[in-house]
């Protein structure tokens, strides 16, 4: 619904954003794809660069570090998702109840999301999880237990805890928004129909939240697949906390095996796109309304 004039103006005004993003997507992507088929060691003059065919892809998958890294990635992503969703739903329902000082409680709950990842990783690592001076060690000793060296004895669990703490606010906030959009009369009607609180939760609240939960799962998955700073600062990828992202980072920047790392990058891109397709479907449907 517009004139030719405004349509051409619109195309012109959209151009910078579209061109920039197109460049941002295509140039590095093409380079990564190119490198992934090459033997390429920028810091090793003795290794001659050349065509590698699919050998990088094969080697990346068959390396002994690959499957453990996939497993770690799945454990971290899955663990964080389960914790944030379950606690997020509970918190959302709790915060929706009438209470005094609701605004302040909301702020307290949301705050971790605004903490920079390197800060939360370091604070947790040193001040809470340190086996001698950490607060958790104090707590363990207070109950007469032997303090845990969290990051070396239970490294993956520790990282899941840290990352969950960071993302719980996000899940809570979105689920709370969804809970608040629930029609109160619908709940009252079900109460009149004699539904118990538990069956109200299963038959009305949970289905109402399903869309929001799906969105939280998809968005968090995309962000969680690429968590970096939390591992970089805490374990540096040691003790079996090397995720796929971290493995690729090590191949590319630490051992400067760009060809191999790029092949890993291509895998990561494919993985992210599988998740992305589902998210786009939901968002796209929403656009039509």
């Amino acid at each position: 619904m517009a004139t030719q004039h405004s349509r051409s103006a619109a195309r012109f005004m959209m151009a910078p954003a579209v061109i920039l993003l197109l460049g941002w997507m295509l140039v590095p992507l093409t380079m990564t794809l190119w490198f992934s088929f090459r033997n390429y060691f920028p810091l090793r003059p003795d290794r001659v660069p050349g065509w590698a065919g699919f050998s990088n892809f094969e080697r990346f998958i068959s390396s002994s570090a690959f499957w453990p890294s996939v497993q770690t990635t799945l454990v971290i992503v899955g663990g964080v998702l389960v914790i944030t969703i379950v606690l997020g739903v509970a918190l959302a329902l709790l915060l929706d109840q009438p209470m005094w000082g609701q605004g302040i409680v909301r702020i307290l709950v949301i705050a971790p999301f605004f903490v920079m990842p390197t800060v939360s990783a370091l604070v947790w690592k040193n001040m809470f999880m340190d086996p001698t001076n950490g607060l958790l060690a104090h707590l363990w000793r207070f109950f007469g237990a032997e303090p845990l060296a969290w990051l070396s004895e239970a490294p993956t669990v520790s990282i899941v805890m840290i990352v969950s703490w960071q993302w719980l606010p996000f899940a809570t906030l979105i689920l709370l928004t969804a809970v608040q959009s629930l029609d109160g009369e619908q709940l009252e009607a079900s109460e009149m129909d004699g539904a118990s609180p538990l069956s109200r939760f299963y038959h009305i609240i949970l289905p109402h939240l399903s869309r929001a939960i799906t969105i939280v799962v998809l968005i968090q998955t995309i962000f969680l697949l690429s968590i970096f700073a939390e591992i970089y600062v805490t374990t540096g990828g040691a003790f079996g906390t090397r995720t796929l992202t971290y493995l690729i980072f090590q191949r590319v920047l630490e051992s400067q095996n760009v060809g191999l790392g790029s092949a890993g990058g291509v895998y990561a891109i494919i993985l992210a796109n599988i998740v992305a397709i589902f998210l786009m479907r939901i968002v796209g449907k929403n656009l039509d309304r």
């Binding site: 997507m25 990564t32 992202t245 690729i248 590319v252 760009v258 990058g265 990561a268 891109i269």
Partner: peptide, 9 residues
């Protein structure tokens, strides 16, 4: 949604 690590180098 492009993973940053994929285009790091």
């Amino acid at each position: 949604m492009l993973p940053a690590v994929g285009v790091l180098y």
